[in-house]
Structure formats: structure tokens, C-alpha cells
């Protein structure tokens, strides 16, 4: 088991190095917008000024030196946006609370709801409850977040006045307001995932129902509840947990752009959205790296969790 974990963590680090280098090449060196020194110097700069900036920022150095410098700058918080001049790390840190609140809250919500609904649908498979849930999950899966967000804002927030219309209130300022402001975004972000995950779980529970060891468990005289929880769910949860790991990583890394913009949360997704519009490559590089780190770390965690849950994988 220890060997498995160590190997998995080593691969994780190697993957991060490769990903960061490739993104660096894509965004900074092969910069589609032109010479970064010229971008920093502005439109009116003379060639001498551009050259000066180029030397100062190290754009004349070999690629690997630039790579190490850029990475160092990103991680110690001294990277600045070429166009806007703001501190990239600062911008991300400012957006982080909103994004983390949104994604972790929504992540827990959609995971628990889909486990509940998926299990219910599987247990009642073929009956009325299952059919209703099937239809609902189809609706959920095909509901775009901007539409759902808009609908919620108009009817629940604006017409009924039950929820705030938009914005983010820090938890430290008022836990209750923080919660109230996030209910809408959480629902908006979760519905699609709940629809999808509960279908996947229903399928994997139904598959597991046919397993020989489940028949053995019943033959032992165990209660249906115990058969379900101990012998079916443990294996059936694996696929949705691995989906969850990757999805939550994406959302933390700024993937909930639509939900953040509809509800005006000014999180990392919003930052990414603005950076794309402004062609702000340094910020984009930082956000892509953040996503990559989240995805790689989560998938390592998921793999390790798999090994904990299924002893056959531990052989590594």
C-alpha cells in the first residue's frame, strides 16, 4: 500500500512539471499575441525601450531559464499581468474565497444528492419513482447553468425575494449572509452534476445487484439494507467518486465561469473570463496551472482512495 501511494505521488509530481512546462511554452513562448516585451512596453515604446524591458524581464534568456523564472514568479507572488499590471497571485487570492465557497459547497451538495437519488432510483428500478427520477435527471443534464441561473434569479430572487439577487458576502463578515448568497449558485452549479451522477450511480448499483457476491450476501441472510450499504454501495460509489474528484478540481480551478458570472461572484472563473477577453496570458497561465494542480492532485487522491476501498488495486 505504501509503495502504491509513493509511486502515485511521484507520478503526480512528474505530471505537474510536464504540464506546467507545456502550458508555459503555449502561453508565454509561442505567445500568439506577439512579443511580451512589446506588450509590456505599450504601443508607443521605442525599440530600445522594448529591448530594455526584454532584458529586464529575461525574455532574451534560454527557454528553460525563463521557465524557471516564470514559475518562481508565479509561486512567490511576483508575477504581474503584462497588460493590466495587477499582481496575478493577488487577483487569484482575491477570487479564491468566492470560488472555494461555491465549489466545495456545491460539490458536497451534488455528491450527497446524487448518492441519495441514484440509490433511490436503483432500489426502485422499473417503478414509478425510478421513472420520475429518470425524467428529472434528463431535465437536469440538459439544463444550461446560465438559463437555470437566470430562471432562479428572476423567479426566486427577484419575484419571490427569497434569495439575494447576486454578489458574494464573506463568511467572516456574516455566515448567514454568506450561506444565503450561495444557495442560488450552489443549485445552479449542482443540477447538471446531480442529473448525470445519479444516472451513473443507478447504473452501477444495478450492475452490482447482479454480482455473485451480492447473491452470496443475500444467501447469508443479511438484511436488504446491509446488503445495499456494505456489499453494493462500496463498489458502486467508486465511479462517481472518481468523476467527482475531477469535476470538483475543475470547478475550483475556475471552471464554473457561467455560474460565477450569472450570480456575480467575482471568483476565479470570472477572473479567467476577463483574462481571456484581455488576452492576459500571465493570468491565464496561472489559472491553467491552478486547474492542472487541482486536477492532478485530486486524481491522485481518487486513485489512492480506490486502493483503500479495493484491496485488489493495492498490488500496484
Amino acid at each position: 500500500m505504501a509503495r502504491f501511494v509513493i509511486r502515485r505521488l511521484i507520478t503526480m509530481v512528474l505530471m505537474l512539471i510536464v504540464i506546467s512546462f507545456v502550458t508555459f511554452l503555449l502561453f508565454i513562448v509561442a505567445l500568439p499575441g506577439g512579443n511580451p516585451a512589446a506588450l509590456i512596453a505599450g504601443r508607443l515604446a521605442t525599440p530600445a525601450e522594448v529591448h530594455l524591458i526584454s532584458v529586464r524581464y529575461g525574455f532574451d534568456k534560454p527557454i528553460w531559464v525563463q521557465y524557471v523564472r516564470t514559475m518562481a514568479n508565479l509561486f512567490d507572488g511576483s508575477a504581474y499581468s503584462y497588460q493590466e499590471g495587477f499582481n496575478v497571485m493577488g487577483a487569484i487570492t482575491r477570487g479564491a474565497p468566492a470560488t472555494l465557497s461555491l465549489s466545495i459547497g456545491a460539490g458536497v451538495f451534488w455528491l450527497l444528492s446524487s448518492i441519495g437519488l441514484g440509490t433511490l432510483a436503483a432500489v426502485r428500478s422499473g417503478r414509478y419513482t425510478d421513472r420520475v427520477l429518470t425524467v428529472l435527471s434528463m431535465v437536469g443534464v440538459s439544463m444550461p447553468p446560465f438559463l437555470l441561473g437566470a430562471v432562479l434569479i428572476y423567479y426566486v430572487s427577484y419575484k419571490a425575494g427569497v434569495l439575494p439577487i447576486n454578489g458574494y458576502i464573506s463568511f467572516t463578515v456574516s455566515p448567514w449572509q454568506w450561506f444565503r448568497h450561495l444557495i442560488g449558485p450552489w443549485i445552479t452549479l449542482s443540477v447538471l452534476f446531480i442529473g448525470f451522477y445519479s444516472r451513473v450511480l443507478r447504473g452501477s448499483i444495478l450492475d452490482a445487484q447482479g454480482e455473485d457476491y451480492v447473491r452470496t450476501a443475500r444467501a447469508k441472510g443479511l438484511s436488504e439494507r446491509r446488503v445495499l450499504v456494505r456489499h453494493i454501495l462500496r463498489m458502486s460509489l467508486l465511479p462517481i467518486i472518481s468523476l467527482w474528484g475531477l469535476d470538483i478540481a475543475q470547478v475550483i480551478g475556475g471552471g464554473a465561469i457561467l455560474t460565477e458570472s450569472v450570480w456575480g461572484l467575482h471568483g476565479i472563473g470570472q477572473l479567467a473570463f476577463n483574462a481571456i477577453g484581455a488576452f492576459d496570458t500571465v493570468t491565464l497561465l496561472a489559472i491553467v496551472l491552478l486547474t492542472a494542480i487541482c486536477v492532478v492532485v485530486m486524481s491522485a487522491l481518487v486513485d489512492i482512495l480506490y486502493a483503500v476501498l479495493d484491496p485488489r488495486i493495492r498490488l500496484g
Binding site: E211, D212, Y213, R215, T216, A217, H231, R234, M235, L309, D310, P311, R312
Partner: peptide
Amino acid sequence: QDPMSSLNPV
């Protein structure tokens, strides 16, 4: 019949 699949692997 099949002892390979009749015990829970986990």
C-alpha cells in the same frame, strides 16, 4: 458455482 466471484473482493 464460481468461487472466484462469489466472495466480496473488498
